[in-house]
């Protein structure tokens, strides 16, 4: 025998189930009067610095059907690449930008949409700068442990040297993390569909 390492085990994940919104978006499921507003619906305000963008897409299962009961969270840096978090060690982030958003996907077509800003760049552990990206976390009925992925932006040249994108062994799969740009009413719209399984399956991360 050897000495015991004094670590605990992480609590095992379980699915969020079909009624996750009772706990995360009670007002959205008409449980009103318990809390004032569901958290995470609004990321930007008039004081937020940075370029306004829309991030939208659809969640799709392995049969090509929309996933209509998921919850999507995003987490990102501000326009300067700083996170609004006590764990941010590089400086103070824009106080007018929380950096975190959360919403249920549409019950009819599995779509989601966040109004946010284009994030600045964040370093990789070895000091290289990562391309601008938004972290995404998805939970739903049938998903036993939350899926992490990232959104990159089609119009960023920095994608070519991004340490994470370069680690994807199959170059054609890098495309699944790159949101497609269009414009609507003068606002950049980045479309990021998430395919849980099958052809063009989104790259998911173990970070």
């Amino acid at each position: 025998m050897v000495q015991h390492l004094d670590y605990l085990k992480e609590s095992a994940s379980q699915t969020a189930g079909p009624y996750v919104h009772i706990g995360t978006n009670p007002n959205w499921v008409e449980i009103t009067g318990v809390w004032k507003a569901d958290l995470g619906l609004v990321l930007v305000g008039p004081e937020t610095k940075g370029e306004r963008i829309l991030l939208e897409g659809t969640l799709i299962d392995g049969a090509g059907s929309p996933v209509r009961d998921a919850l999507v969270e995003i987490w990102q840096a501000d326009a300067q690449g700083l996170h609004n978090s006590p764990a941010e060690t590089r400086g103070a982030a824009d106080p007018a930008f929380a950096g975190w958003g959360r919403q249920p996907v549409s019950e009819t077509d599995g779509s989601y949409r966040f109004e946010t800003i284009r994030p600045g760049r964040v370093p990789y552990p070895d000091g290289r700068m990562q391309a601008p990206h938004i972290s995404v976390w998805i939970v739903a009925r049938g998903i036993n442990i939350g899926l992490h992925t990232r959104v990159y932006f089609e119009d960023e040249a920095a994608n070519e040297a991004d340490p994470l994108l370069l680690r994807i062994p199959e170059p054609h799969r890098r495309r699944t993390l790159i949101a497609r740009r269009s414009e609507r009413d003068g606002l950049p719209v980045f479309r990021f569909d998430i395919r849980l399984q099958g052809d063009d399956e989104t790259v998911f991360l173990d970070m």
Binding site: Q130, G142, T202, F204
Partner: peptide
């Protein structure tokens, strides 16, 4: 329900970066 909602490809393993080592409080 997990059958159609489970990725078939391996997860991409990476060290955490500042993007994952921070979070909303």
């Amino acid at each position: 329900t997990s059958i159609l909602r489970a990725p078939k490809n391996a997860l991409l393993s990476l060290p955490t970066t500042a993007s994952e080592e921070t979070g909303p409080v």
